[in-house]
Amino acid sequence: MSRSSIKVRAKVKNGKAKVKMLISHPMETGLRKNKKTKKLIPAHFIQEVVCEHDGTKVLDAEWNATISKNPFLSFSFNGAKPGDSIKISWVDNTGKSDSTEVKMR
């Protein structure tokens, strides 16, 4: 994949970093049906999102299929400065994964 499935914005203000991210993912619950074939669409959803600040884990999110399609997540943490890196990675129930690393502003 040339383009990452994760869009991240991280801003630092007075040592506090606010991170917002959008991940493009279908987040199928496995309960929905394909209207044409009447077959159930298999479950396909992100199970874990890990956020690391300069190698230190700041958030470990375990998700159920309940999270909306193309998930949005925002959180904040302390002890950051502009230029620090933030790495976001996810793994879904089919074993697919993606990650991205950005510098905070």
Binding site: V58, L59, D60, E62, T66, S68, S74, F77, N78
Partner: peptide, 18 residues
Amino acid sequence: ATFKLGPTTDGYISTRIK
């Protein structure tokens, strides 16, 4: 979902659910 927070992380989470 369960969000496990690191020691420096604030008690703040915003997301969208079904």
